[in-house]
């Protein structure tokens, strides 16, 4: 497979997952600000922006929901907002059009076409629901129509790394804002994990268990450890270990941070949650770079001008 194509597939996986996760995160964030009269909107919004790698607005500005939604939800020009991620996913599908199945392409293209009409700030919840549904359709199409060859592995690899990264960011919002931030129940809900969590532990919920569920659960597909395991599995499928002593960089980064989470007492991790989550994010980023270096080497930078895009 061409490196360029593989890179596009990898990023389709990442962008779609990013749109999905950001929509979940924002949906719960907005809902909590509305339903909880004691929420400190400014603080909560600032910590969310910070976690999502956005510049901190000037201190004298009162940061509200609208600002967060504009920046993280409706900005079409930044691939790290929902709209931008959907645009970018479609662009990548266009670059790999001959490999991407027609069904998948049409789904991504339709999402892109519907995007302007779905961005109605009057009812952000509808927008988030729509984004989640589109992401679910993309995942469904990938699962049901793609051969389990490199095409599939690159997309799943992208998705898993993004998911681990976003779940780590989500957990950071909790730690940063302290009691002003979203409760564990809210975080679980935003990952679609609340009901699964309640069923697993029934009434005996506690902060540690909730953190453990999102961090370490080996069965829940959005937990950090599950996602990292899946990324490792995809990397292994792409290139089975041949050398007896060394391991490639991407797998090393992911495996290291995963074992770091898995083989330590939960309380130790929870006590230093922001730091640990930063490690996860950095590992995801490093793994992504290593994957790029290994599989997507690019020649000299080409710059297109004019109407090329």
């Amino acid at each position: 497979m061409l490196s360029r194509i593989a890179e596009s597939l990898f990023w389709i996986g990442r962008y779609v997952e990013r749109a999905d996760d950001t929509a979940r995160l924002l949906d719960v964030h907005v809902q909590i600000l509305l339903e909880d009269p004691w929420a400190e909107e400014d603080l909560a919004c600032r910590s969310l922006l910070s976690v999502m790698d956005r510049p901190d607005p000037p201190a004298d500005l009162d940061v509200g929901r609208e600002h967060v939604l504009d920046v993280l939800g409706y900005d079409r020009f930044s691939p790290s907002s929902i709209a931008g991620a959907l645009v970018a996913a479609r662009e990548n599908a266009r670059r790999a059009r001959e490999i991407v199945s027609t069904e998948l392409w049409e789904c991504l293209n339709a999402s892109w076409n519907q995007l302007p009409s779905q961005m109605r700030p009057a009812r952000p919840h509808d927008y988030f629901t729509w984004v989640r549904e589109r992401a679910a359709i993309v995942t469904g199409i990938i699962e049901s129509t793609t051969s389990r060859d490199d095409t599939w592995h690159f997309m799943v690899l992208g998705r898993s790394i993004e998911r681990a990264d976003m779940t780590a960011r989500l957990l950071t919002t909790r730690a940063l804002a302290g009691s002003a931030g979203p409760s564990w129940a809210t975080l679980l809900r935003s990952c679609g994990a609340h009901e699964a969590f309640l069923r697993t532990y029934r009434g005996n919920t506690s902060d540690e268990r909730a953190a453990g569920f999102l961090l370490l659960d080996r069965l829940f597909p959005r937990s950090v450890v599950y996602s990292l395991n899946q990324a490792e599995a995809s990397l292994a499928a792409l290139e089975p270990i041949a050398d007896r002593t060394t391991i490639d960089d991407a797998r090393r980064h992911i495996g290291l941070v995963r074992t770091n989470l898995e083989y330590r007492p939960l309380l130790e991790i929870v006590d230093a949650l922001p730091r640990e989550m930063e490690l996860v994010q950095r590992a995801c980023s490093a793994a992504s770079d290593a994957i790029r270096a290994r599989y997507f080497p690019s020649g000299a930078e080409l710059t297109w001008v004019g109407e090329a895009l």
């Binding site: 890179e7 910070s50 999502m52 790698d53 930063e278 950095r282 980023s285």
Partner: peptide
């Protein structure tokens, strides 16, 4: 202090 979000 936040970790940058990558993109293609």
């Amino acid at each position: 202090a936040s970790v940058p979000i990558d993109s293609h």
